[in-house]
Design a protein around this nucleic acid. Structure first.
Lengths: 346, 346
DNA sequence: TGCACTTTGGCAACACCGTTGCTTAAGTGA
DNA sequence: TCACTTAAGCAACGGTGTTGCCAAAGTGCA
């Protein structure tokens, strides 16, 4: 039964989150959740005594008592987001609404191995909390890094180019050092989660990340797809040229190799066309609603890539919109959402 | 609250289904569901009075009162499965356990259009029920046909080669004619659903169907992935050769075109290699546990295709097992599961 | 200004579900 | 035969959302 209670509470809380500063009335909550107004009254009363929700003004009357507007209290909880990139460490603090309230960035060499890097992470997070820590509860820390890794165990696999990380109990060690719950996930999954939780996000989409490598975060039916070994989203080694050049992975004609080769020779249009073919494969295979592009290479020429990918999709009669959505800190913000999402039942 | 009740009842019922003729005791049900033994007693008592479950002997004692074995009563409900193939109509009746109790088959030309074909379906189903109809309740009819189509509305789209079907309200019309609830889905989705509900089925797998065309049914986290427009699984038009031969779909180097070309020239090994590349893309992108092959072309040389696909996966270091699993009536049985699955919460 | 009407939201009693504490049933083993 | 073990049912309970009723807070017309 507590499962039911927390489920409905999370449902209400999520609607409050999506409503944002506009707020939402009890009756609207009842309509959206399918609960009776009275049940919503009870649930919101509990949320208010817990400090998670608050009343904030009234709507205009429609001939009777005006509706009371309820809003989420963003300062009721905070989360740390950590992005371990190959050459950079981003650490930030967000409130319950996902708004960034503090951010730190420093250079980093992931190749130094787990020990020194986790020292740096611990130091950064401690300073972040010391400098911006609200008195309220910090719910935990989300950590995003390049895959492969095991999301459930919180342990990296053989990270490409950085074998020293394999098998290191990152989640456990950081949780001990920080005294906080820690969640570990792939960088692309974190980014996709953050994008999936934006208000009005489509139900299903792919976040395609073109940076040092090529990967994707897949969101299907509102939830990120991880797969049993957290391996889902390996877009880089999709074969798109059966007799193409060989790749370190053992295959031929891998999307990543072809795409990065075009980037290397300065052929943005060519790279976009190849990326578009990969995106089209995704749209067709998974019947998704949208393609979101991100990553350093894309951000260097956002319109070029968006237009190129759009053109390929249009040529195949696919109508899924293509947008550039990966802001610079998208992964770190998504990492914080790894901690926040469970609060809202996501 | 009724939602909770039926959810837990479905949970128990599904465990009874998977336990099959072996049966399962109340305490095992309690362990597997996380409910207390007392709650399981109440739920199973209800199921027994409803005729869905029955006591069937006892286990050996382990020093105390022996456990009572409970079993699903397969004859408590029946479902009709209809497979509308391009040139053949298969109609069958299964009990609650999915066991086929009657089957009819006849030639058919899907190109004749919805009217004559639905006449034939109505006739076949009526005769099937007249000949094998148990007095008990027939829960409904599941209908599987080539895509694209809209699962929710129960309406086909522009079926390749048979434009006359587009927009015809198949589900509604058949429901009216048969006086039964009707569910419509793509052939590959139906087959995948049937395979997903087998005891000991992997959590995530792809059913790859090579017949008149090439398609796939994707099962992720135990549930079939349909996508918002029931378009998921469009494996045939994945680009695997960027500069390959053009396809009617507007693309180049589509998997279906290349694979069927190899089949046409009698090159089974080549077709299997190409199919393997497509399967490898699936395994990597979705991190699935297994690849199941089916369809007429595969069934004509099952070991050849299985071995060829296995070889490609092994060469890429992928360990997902490859099996041939699509028996001749897999789609029709899966169609019946479209009706049965909701009973078991699937 | 007064009063009827509409709409919102809380209070109390209720029904339903799973849980807890205890009892009965049905075996084993010395 | 009797102590012990394990399974399953009975009764009382706590917690959830629901229903019926009433108070609060507006609008709009006479």
């Amino acid at each position: 039964m507590p499962a039911l209670r927390s489920h409905n509470a999370a449902l209400v809380l999520d609607l409050l989150r999506v409503a944002g500063e506009t707020g939402i009335s009890r009756l609207e909550l009842a309509e959206r959740t399918g609960l009776t107004p009275q049940a919503v009254s009870k649930i919101t009363a509990r949320l208010r005594t817990e400090g998670l929700a608050t009343e904030a003004g009234h709507r205009a009357s429609t001939g009777g008592k005006p509706r009371t507007v309820l809003r989420l209290v963003p300062s009721a909880g905070y989360a740390v987001g950590v992005h371990l990139d190959r050459d950079e460490l981003t650490t930030l603090l967000t409130d319950l609404a996902g708004t960034v309230v503090a951010l730190r960035r420093r250079a980093l060499d992931l190749g130094e191995g787990a020990g020194p890097v986790l020292d740096a992470v611990t130091e950064e997070v401690r300073e972040l909390l010391a400098e911006a820590a609200p008195p309220g509860a910090v719910l935990g820390a989300g950590v995003a890094m390049p895959g492969p890794l095991d999301h459930r165990a919180g342990v990296p696999g053989r990270v490409t180019g950085f074998p020293a990380w394999e098998g290191h109990p990152v989640r456990e060690e950081l949780a001990g050092r920080l005294g906080l719950p820690v969640v570990l996930d792939k960088d692309t999954n974190a980014a996709a989660l953050g994008l999936a939780l934006r208000p009005a996000a489509p139900d299903s989409f792919a976040y395609v990340h073109l940076g040092t490598g090529l990967g994707a975060g897949l969101v299907l039916g509102g939830a990120p797809l991880r797969g049993d070994r957290t391996g889902a989203g390996e877009l880089g080694h999709q074969t798109v040229q059966l007799d193409g050049p060989p790749c370190d992975c053992g295959g031929r004609g891998c999307l990543e190799v072809l795409c990065l080769a075009a980037v290397a020779r300065g052929d943005t249009a060519g790279a976009a066309r190849i990326l578009g073919a990969g995106a089209a494969n995704l749209v067709r295979l998974l019947d998704i609603d949208q393609v979101l592009l991100g990553g350093r290479v894309v951000l260097a020429a956002p319109e070029g890539y968006a237009a190129g990918v759009r053109e390929v999709l249009a040529g195949l009669g696919l109508t899924a919109p293509v947008e550039v959505a990966g802001e610079r800190d998208a992964v770190a913000v998504g990492a914080a959402w790894l901690v926040l999402a469970p609060v809202f039942g996501a």
